[in-house]
Simulated assay, not measured.
Amino acid sequence: MSSVPFHYVDLRAFCYATEDEKRVEDALRTFLPEEFEIDRVVNAGHHGDRIVVLSARVERADDVRHVLSKLSDLAEWDRVLAELDERVDDNNSLFLRLDKQAAFKGSAELGPGITFRAKVEAYPAKHETAVKNARETFEELAEEAGESGSAGDAGGEAA
Rank of each mutant, 00 (worst) to 15 (best):
H47S: 14
Y16I: 02
A44I: 05
P33M: 01
R60Q: 14
D73A: 15
L71F: 07
E37I: 12
Y8Q: 11
A56K: 01
I38Y: 03
F36N: 06
N43P: 01
L84G: 07
V41P: 04
R23I: 11
S69P: 00
V52K: 07
Y8L: 10
K22W: 09
R23E: 15
V64S: 07
N43G: 13
R79S: 10
V41W: 10
R65M: 06
L71N: 04
R79K: 11
V64W: 03
R60S: 11
P33G: 01
R23S: 13
L84E: 12
E34F: 01
G45A: 12
V67K: 09
P33W: 08
V80G: 07
V67D: 05
L74E: 00
Y8M: 06
A17T: 09
F6Y: 09
H66P: 01
E35W: 04
V42P: 00
T30E: 02
Y16E: 11
R40L: 02
E34D: 10
E25G: 11
E83R: 13
V52A: 09
F6K: 06
D39E: 14
D39Q: 13
R50Q: 14
A17V: 11
S72W: 00
L74G: 07
H66F: 15
L32Q: 09
H47K: 12
I38K: 01
L28M: 08
D63Y: 03
V24P: 02
A56V: 05
V67F: 05
L54R: 08
V9M: 06
L74F: 00
P33Y: 03
T30Y: 05
R40G: 01
K70Y: 01
D73S: 14
E59I: 02
L11S: 03
E83I: 01
F14M: 14
V67M: 04
A44V: 12
E21W: 00
R23D: 15
A13Y: 10
G48L: 08
D62T: 11
H66Y: 11
C15Q: 07
A44Q: 15
R65H: 12
E59M: 02
G48D: 05
V64L: 08
F14T: 10
Y8W: 14
D62S: 12
H46F: 12
S55Y: 10
R50E: 15
D49G: 13
E35I: 00
G48K: 12
Y16V: 06
E83A: 13
D73C: 06
G45Q: 08
I38H: 04
F6C: 06
D78F: 00
V24G: 08
S72T: 09
R29A: 03
H46L: 15
D10F: 13
S72N: 04
N43D: 11
E21V: 14
S69Q: 10
A82E: 15
H7I: 07
L81G: 07
E35N: 14
S55E: 14
L32E: 05
L28P: 04
V42Q: 12
D78R: 07
D73T: 10
E19Y: 02
E25A: 13
T30D: 05
D20K: 03
A17I: 08
A61N: 02
L32A: 04
N43I: 13
K22R: 14
